[in-house]
Structures are given as structure tokens and as C-alpha cells.
Amino acid sequence: MDILLQLIANGVLLGGVFALISIGLTLIFGIVRVVNFAHGELLMVGLYATWIMATQFGLHPYVAALPLAVAFFFLGALMQRAIIQPLMNADPHIQIFATVGVGTALANAALMIFSADLRSVDLPWARQATDLFGLASVSRGNLVAFAVSFVATGALIAFLNRTHLGRAIRAVAQNRYAAPLMGIDVNRIYAITFGIGAGCVGLAAAVLAPLYPAFPTVGSFFVLTAFVVVVLGGMGSLEGAVVGALIIGLVESLAGYYVAPDLKEVVYFVIFLGILIVRPAGLFGVRGNE
């Protein structure tokens, strides 16, 4: 029994990690309608940035989170303006090539600069186990990541629903041709949304840095799962991303124990396919939005 509780705790916390990485992706996916294949590499850049700030300037990774998120906002907006914007009306394949290209360039730049070594932020506090009401033992860093993913998602949902800019972003998502008729500068919205999506990655990187070492290909370890989470939850749906991430996290944890560790991906892809057959737009997706 307590092993089951432990597995559920592990799964839920892993889901928190996936959610943190997926919310930025789902925003970009759902609103700018660009499949950002460089998402994982942005995370990698963020992990290195956190590592540099921690080792060179002695900045606590959690303190680095906010400046990093802001810096990534501008980085994302710049990337959208310089690389995606000229291709907004091009064939979707071309956009995919562009983002894949950015990702490859970033990964190899990291390899040139940092070599293939692991760079790890030293924060033993985050890796220590803490007892969860005597039911399960989990790491503090994972608890922090979990909390941050919920707070960030909540804040983003409030922003999208309550503010003028948020409503404008949703309007663009609903109909990118009608929105300009309502006086919305669509291109500006795209840049801002891409920036917010990238900012989420920056935040995620700082929070995850104590848990995962940085190396040039670390992005590819997370990005496939993030895509599954986004499609499972419904593209563009933040609530969907969180629920999708929790499902994947739980399935990974339980299937890894009860089935076999090397078959856990098979299990979650089967569940993924099953859900898509029943709900092609994802759990929280709107039909026609995909």
C-alpha cells in the first residue's frame, strides 16, 4: 500500500515538472499556431543560464527565476520577430524547419561553448528527501517545481481572462483574421505570446536546474513528453496542459513499477492514442481549434 502511495506521489510531482515545461509550449502552439521544436533547446539554454548565474555570481537558482523569465520573454519575442514572423504566412512545414533549425543551432552552440560535460547547479537542499505526512518521501526541489507550475498556470489563466491584453491574445487564438478588425495588432500579440511562452521556459529552467544537470541535448529528453502533454490536454489549453502532465507523470511512475521501466513510454502512448480516439482535440481542446 505505501509503495502505491509513494509511486503516486512520485508521479504527481513528475507531472508538475512536465506541466512546468508544457505551459509555455501550449501557449505558443495554441495561439501563434507554430510548433516550436526549439522549445527543448530553450530549456537547455535556461539551465545553462541558471548554472552560470549560480556558479559565477552565486545567485540562488530560485532567485534567478524571475530575471531569467524576463530575459527569456525578450528572447522569445525577438525569436518570433526575427525568425517566425517572416514565415507567419508561409507553409507550416517551413515554420517547422525554422524552429528545428534554431533548436539544432542552439544545441550545437552549447556543445561548442560548454562541451558535452554535465553542468550541475549545486543545491543539496533541493535534493534532500522530505517526508510527506508519513506517507511518502519526496524531494523538496520537486515540491517547489510542483508548486511553481500551479502558481504559474493560475497566474497565466487569470492574465488571459481578466486583462485586456489577455483577452486580445485569446481573440487572436479564436480568429486571427477577425481580431485585427477589432483593433488588435496581431503581430504584436504573436510576439508577446511567444515571449510569454519562452518566459515560462526560463522560469521552468531556473526551478528545474537544482534537479536536472545541464548538457547540450537535455532539451530533447523533455520535449517529446511536452508535446504529448500539450496534445493530450488540448492545444492552447493551460488547464489541459496541467491535467495532461499529471496523467503522463502518473502513468510513467506506475507503469515503470508495475509493468517495466523500459515499457513505460509504450503504456503512456497507448493511453495517449486512446484519449485522442475519443477526444481528437485533446481533453480540454475545442474541436476545430487543432
Binding site: L7, V17, Y212, S253, L254, G256, A260, P261, D262
Partner: peptide, 14 residues
């Protein structure tokens, strides 16, 4: 066995 691309090995440890 597990995939080297795993981001979590907690179930292996259990």
C-alpha cells in the same frame, strides 16, 4: 532496463 532518455528513475528505485 530503462531508456537513457528517461527524466525520472523513481519507479526503478522502488
Amino acid at each position: 532496463a530503462y531508456s537513457a532518455r528517461s527524466v525520472d528513475l523513481s519507479s526503478v528505485i522502488q
